[in-house]
Design a binder for these strands. Structure first.
Lengths: 343, 343
DNA sequence: CGACAGCCTGGAACCGGTTCCAGCGTGTTC
DNA sequence: GAACACGCTGGAACCGGTTCCAGGCTGTCG
C-alpha cells in the first residue's frame, strides 16, 4: 500500500508539503506542486479515507435511511440522493428499516456517526420521538416526504396535487370522490386529508385507511363499489393499481364506470392498462435537493415544497350518466366508516 | 464528543485496559471490565468508526455496485445485501452506475478503498476489463448475476429456468417458441441463449435483442406477431410486460392467442392482468449469499447457482388450434433476423 | 522461603493523514 | 544597507483508537 510518505519521498519533499500539494492548499511552490502530482500519479497513490476522516472529521459520506428499498417510491428517491452525492464527490451509506419503526432509532444513531449528513426519507417515527433523535444524529439531517420544525425538509406540494386531481375529476362530472387513504400514522396521508377537507369538505367520501400496497387497493375497491362511488382518489399508485385490478376482476369498466387517480407516478403507472392518471411527484429531484440541504444549514430550517403535476392518462373519464348502483347485497364495513366526511 | 480516554478516566483505568475491555479482549479482570462498561454506558460513549478503521484496517462496511437502483431486479438484490450486512453488523455503501459502463471502473476503485468487501451486481464490463479491476479493488469481491473465473459469484440456474419454461409451453402444445432476447452484452442473456440452443435448438425462433425494458417488449411483440408465434419467452419481466401491453393494444388475446412467459418474477408480474407466468429468481437471497461469500475467500473461488422456479399464472394457456396468421401486410425487419435459429 | 509461571496492567508506538508553528530565504521599502 | 514582510518549507503534534511490550502482582511448586 502506498502512503503519502512514499509520495513525499519520491517527490523529494516533506510530508507536510506533500499533504498541502495534494489538497490544493496555498503555500506550495508551483514546482513542488507539480513534483508531488507526478509522484502521486506514478505511484498510483490513493489517500486513505479513514485517515483523512480521522483528522478532518469529515467522512465524505452521506447516509440515507428508507423504509423499503424495493418500494419504487423510495428507490427513486435513493437514486436521486445517490446521483447528487456522487456529483459532489461523496458516497452514500444506505439503510433499509424494512418498514419497522422500532429499528429507526438504532439505524439513525449508528449511521449518524459514520456520515457527514443524513437524509431521512419518510421516517415512520412519531414527531415526539423524531425530534430528540435528530439531535442525537450529531450532524446535519434533512427529511424527505416528512416535515418537522427541527430539521430542513423537502416534501411535495400535496395540497396542490390534491386540488389538481379534484379539479380534473369535477370537470369530468364526478360530484363525489371517494378517497382510499394510506396509513393513519403517515404524515403524507395527513397532508392529503387536510387538503381534501379544505378543498372539498362535503363532497369527499372517506373509504378509510389501507396498507399502501396493491392489496390495500384491492380492499378499497370493494368499499368504493359498495358505496357507489364513480371516482376514487388513491393514497398512492400501488393502491390505485390494486383498485384497478379489483375493479377489472369484478367486471367494472375503468374508466367508463369508475375513474381512478393515483399519486406519485411510479414507473408501473404508465405501463398498466388502462394507464393510470396520477399526480406525478419529482422523487429523484427530492433526493437531490435533500443532499443539497445537508450542506446549507440555516435557522430556521429550510422547508422546500416541490411542485407536482397531474398526469392524465386513461384511467379517468367523464362520470357515467347513471352511476353504478351500490350493490344491494353488500354493505360497507363499519371500520371504513364511509359516512364520515372529511372536514 | 466522548472518547475512549474519557471512559478510561471515569473508569479509573488506563486507555489500553479500556480498549481491551470494550472489545471483549482477554487479559482484563472482571471488575475492570464491569467498570469500563459502566463508564461507557453512563457517558454515552460510541467508538469513532474512522479511528477504529485506521488501526484495524477494517471499516465495517460492504460496498454494493448496481447498474440502476430503480430497477426492481437490482432493488431486490440491494435489499438482500442490506439485510445480511446489517445482521452481521456492517453497513452498506451503495453506488448506482446509471447503466453506464464507463463509470464502473471509477466506482469500483473508489468504493474498493472504503469497504471491507465489494458486491458487484450484473456488471456490464466485458470480461477482459473486469478481471484486472477485481484485483484493483484491493479486497474481496463477489459477483451477482455474472460469472468470471477470478471471483466468487452467485447466479441463478438459468438453464433450469429455461427448461422449466420450455417444458411448460411444450406441454401446452406450443411447438415453436419465440425468444425476445436481452442486450447482446448481457452475460445472463448469453446464458439464456446457450440453454435455449442446447435444449431446443430448432424449435426456438430468435426475435433478436431488445433493451431490457417495457419499450423493448413492445418492440418485440410486433415481431412475434409478424412471425406468427404462439408463445413468447422473454429476457425478463419488464420485456414480458411490454409484450403483454402491445398484444393487448393490437387486439391479440393473451393467453388465448399468444402465451407470454417472463423471467425474474418482479413484484409487478403478479399484479398485472393477465398475471404473468414467469421464472421466479431468488433475488434477495442472492444478495444475502453474496455478502456471505465476501467473508469466505477460497481457491478456487466459489460459484453458487441458486435454484429457480417457474410460477404459472394467467399469461400462458394451450396453443390455439389455428395459430394467428402472420399479418401479410407486415414483414419482419431484417435486424431481428427471425429466421436464425439458435444452436 | 525463594523461584518461576501466568494473568493484569499501563506506557508508548503506531495507523495515515492534516495542520500548527518556527525558521529560512527572498524581495521590498525606507 | 538594514529592517521588515511574506511565501515556502519541514519538524512535530494531533485525531481516536489498537496493540506490542515491559513490569508488577499473585499463586504455586520445589
Amino acid at each position: 500500500m502506498v502512503t503519502l510518505r512514499d509520495v513525499a519521498r519520491v517527490a523529494g519533499v516533506s510530508l507536510a508539503t506533500a499533504s498541502r500539494a495534494m489538497s490544493d492548499a496555498p503555500h506550495v511552490s508551483a514546482a513542488n506542486r507539480e513534483q508531488v502530482a507526478r509522484a502521486a500519479e506514478s505511484l498510483g497513490y490513493r489517500p486513505h479515507p479513514a485517515a483523512r476522516a480521522l483528522t478532518t472529521g469529515s467522512t465524505g459520506t452521506v447516509g440515507l435511511v428508507v423504509p423499503d428499498l424495493a418500494n419504487p417510491f423510495f428507490a427513486a428517491v435513493a437514486k436521486g440522493v445517490q446521483a447528487r452525492a456522487r456529483e459532489t464527490g461523496r458516497d452514500v451509506l444506505v439503510a433499509d428499516t424494512d418498514e419497522d419503526v422500532a429499528v429507526e432509532p438504532d439505524v439513525i444513531t449508528r449511521l449518524g456517526d459514520r456520515v457527514d449528513g443524513l437524509v431521512l426519507c419518510s421516517p415512520r417515527l412519531p414527531a415526539d420521538a423524531l425530534g430528540p433523535l435528530l439531535a442525537a444524529a450529531g450532524g446535519p439531517v434533512a427529511l424527505v416526504n416528512r416535515e418537522t420544525p427541527d430539521a430542513p425538509s423537502v416534501s411535495f406540494d400535496i395540497a396542490d396535487g390534491v386540488r389538481q386531481a379534484l379539479d380534473h375529476l369535477r370537470a369530468l362530472g364526478h360530484d363525489v370522490v371517494a378517497y382510499a387513504g394510506g396509513p393513519r400514522t403517515s404524515w403524507s396521508d395527513g397532508e392529503r386529508r387536510t387538503a381534501l377537507g379544505a378543498l372539498a369538505g362535503d363532497t369527499v367520501l372517506d373509504l378509510g385507511s389501507f396498507r399502501p400496497t396493491h392489496g390495500g387497493g384491492v380492499q378499497a375497491a370493494d368499499l368504493a363499489l359498495a358505496a357507489g362511488a364513480t371516482a376514487v382518489l388513491c393514497f398512492n399508485d400501488l393502491v390505485a393499481l390494486g383498485v384497478l385490478a379489483r375493479l377489472h376482476a369484478r367486471g367494472v369498466a375503468t374508466p367508463a364506470d369508475v375513474s381512478v387517480v393515483g399519486f406519485d407516478d411510479v414507473a408501473a403507472a404508465s405501463l398498466v392498462t388502462p394507464a393510470l392518471t396520477t399526480v406525478a411527484v419529482p422523487l429523484a429531484r427530492a433526493g437531490r435537493t435533500a443532499v443539497d440541504l445537508l450542506g446549507a444549514a440555516s435557522a430556521p430550517p429550510d422547508h422546500r415544497r416541490l411542485p407536482v403535476e397531474l398526469v392524465v392518462r386513461s384511467s379517468t373519464a367523464p362520470a357515467p350518466p347513471t352511476p353504478v348502483q351500490p350493490d344491494p347485497r353488500t354493505t360497507v364495513p363499519r371500520t371504513a366508516d364511509p359516512e364520515v366526511v372529511i372536514r
